[in-house]
Design a protein around this nucleic acid. Structure first.
Lengths: 218, 218, 218, 218
DNA sequence: AATGAATGAGAATTCATTCAT
DNA sequence: AATGAATGAATTCTCATTCAT
């Protein structure tokens, strides 16, 4: 088929990035070698340097790829959520803790890049860009929600940085020990977080074993 | 004097652990070498293997040391807080985001160990133990508070895992880009978090520029 | 047309040999890669191994080609010089230091092959064959000249090896730093060299700014 | 012994430079590997990078060392020669073609560096500096000789560049095939070269098998 | 014939660890 | 105890060569 040559290049890159993520998830960033990656991709040693000039480049491209995929998924989720800000916030929670983003392969990779970001300007810039954009989106949705439903006096910046921290923190926990907290509990906790600011819009957190009367008495 | 031998040994170990943390904070876990550590400690190459049999051991001991110091500081803070559960929770916030724990050297080391924990059983076990104990403490304090002040129907587990996530998330942010969020904002967000569940005990989050009337209208 | 197949083959080989010389001149022998050569020829990676079984073969063929071209040019020049031995010697100088042989591409290639020749029997044999033949030609011309003009007692072997050394030495200098000595000065020095043995036949070296009286006083 | 530690560093460097020269002489510049050098020095793989940060550095330092040793030997020879310019020129010939400089190990290394010099600015600069200084010394000695013995109208620059070329050319020949020309013949040819300009001071070249009457008739 | 992706051996370099001093 | 030179295994990267298209 025409174009197969050109596509191979793109395909191999994706294949190798996928293999890189698997390798980081399996062995950790520090013990990730080019040989591991090649093996995980079912290819030969030298091929990695053929598609990515250096290991440095491979790792950075992996981070970029992960970030772009994440942004695309988030954008799509927000589009599907429509104009309702509550739906928008729920969509963010669902994306961040959903089956596509919050996986046993990808989350450890996020952690690895975070840990390296402090001393890698390129990583840090990417992290910053992502976080700022994400915070802004939360900020805007909360602002819209507050305006629509008559909430006043909310510190929108604080709400948004808190939510970002909550998600990051759950990723840490899920990344290290997925069986400890789990995505379900994390999602509920996020709803509870927003319920603290927007009680009428988010289900207040219900105690798991209690029935209807689990609201604060009085 | 008796014990000086043992003391030197202990001192050198602390010195090297300190140097290890500085090195991880500076170069990142993956690029931390024994030579870097020795140099940061102002000692010679081979000395590290003398006090720590292997690099593996050095890094694990560093993690243990960091964890023990943290636990000691937290315990002390909780003791000072006395029996009041609100004071206890505030003490936890203050410890986690305070000058002794939340430093530019230590936080990156926590991130590094988290990132490695997934594929290092010894690290993961330590992380688990710490997190479980911490969660239990939050859980107990919240339970006590709820009982004392008549809050009912709260999902204490959720509150505690949410708080742990919040702290971890702020550590991520502060560890990567300390100037972006900062300890002050993080502390306020923690108070706001608890205010979501215990509105009478924690200052609800006020918008920075607004005065008294910043509660929800109606 | 018949032979076009064979012609293409021959053409490509010349093209690749040309590219090899350019590459050696540009990057040096040690850093010459098959990829460089292919790129310099405007062809694809794998093609070089198609026309030359191995890199080894390519380089040797390049040396052979360079040598053959040189021999052909020299032979032609000697033919044009006719039977006069002085004209023959001048033709040799003119060829060795002329526009066709003494170029910024070819001279560095000669140096590269010389440098490699010590430990490459095939190169060394070629060098030997060339040098011996060249020396013999100089020797014969000098012998003829001496016989014709009545020079006696000349050590013809010494004259010829000296001349070979002179040319080789100028190639070294011109190959490394063409702007330092230059072909003109080199040619004059060669004439002066022969004037030392055949003062009546070669212009004795004149000091650049001095006129007629530049012979040794007395 | 005190200072042995400090000396080891210097000793090892010399040892490795020596091993580098042997390796270049044996395998050629292009096929010289760090492993070869280490083996030739009787040391382990990694040691070379310990004393010379990179292969590049090792090779350059080797060239520098070779050049410095040469300059020192030449200077010493010139000192011993005293103020007589003829003795000075003879000393240069004797040094360049003598037992200490013109060895089967060193000459191939010179050739290798020359061949690389074209595309290595650092090498080329070193070559230039050496050549210029050497030429100047020849020029000055010839000038002094001409003044003392009443030679007029000599193109001193041409004499000196010719002599440099002659030496370089003999080094090429001796470096590639030591048995072809040999140091003795080369020395005689150098004397003959100077005899062409200073017939009273240098023995004119005698034909090897002829006796007294080997001067030009008439 | 030609392409350029793929392979894998080989080379430089790094670095944990050992060890003589 | 301490030093820092030495070792050698591991890792990244290069590149000649092969091969499917």
């Amino acid at each position: 088929m025409a174009g197969s040559r050109a596509n191979v290049k793109h395909l191999r890159r994706e294949q190798l990035i996928e293999a890189t993520m698997k390798t980081i998830a399996r062995f950790g960033y520090a013990r990730t070698t080019m040989a591991h990656v090649a093996q995980a991709a079912g290819l030969s040693q030298g091929i990695v340097n053929f598609y990515f000039k250096t290991k440095e480049a491979l790792l950075y491209e992996t981070f970029v790829h992960l970030a772009q995929e994440y942004e695309a998924l988030l954008e799509r989720a927000l589009e599907r959520a429509g104009s309702d800000p509550v739906a928008g916030l729920v969509a963010m929670i669902e994306t961040d803790l959903g089956r596509e983003v919050c996986t046993p392969t990808k989350i450890p990779v996020w952690l690895a890049f975070w840990a390296e970001s402090r001393c890698r300007p390129k990583y840090r810039d990417l992290y910053r860009k992502l976080t700022e954009q994400y915070s802004r989106q939360v900020h805007d949705l909360c602002g819209k929600l507050a305006a629509q439903r008559g909430y006043e006096g909310l510190d929108l910046e604080m709400i948004s940085i808190g939510f970002v921290a909550l998600i990051d923190g759950f990723w840490v926990s899920i990344g290290i020990a997925p069986d400890a907290v789990g995505r379900e509990k994390a999602r509920k906790a996020c709803h509870a977080y927003f319920a603290g600011f927007f009680p009428a819009e988010f289900t207040p957190m219900l105690a798991p074993t209690v029935g209807e009367e689990n609201r604060r008495a009085g």
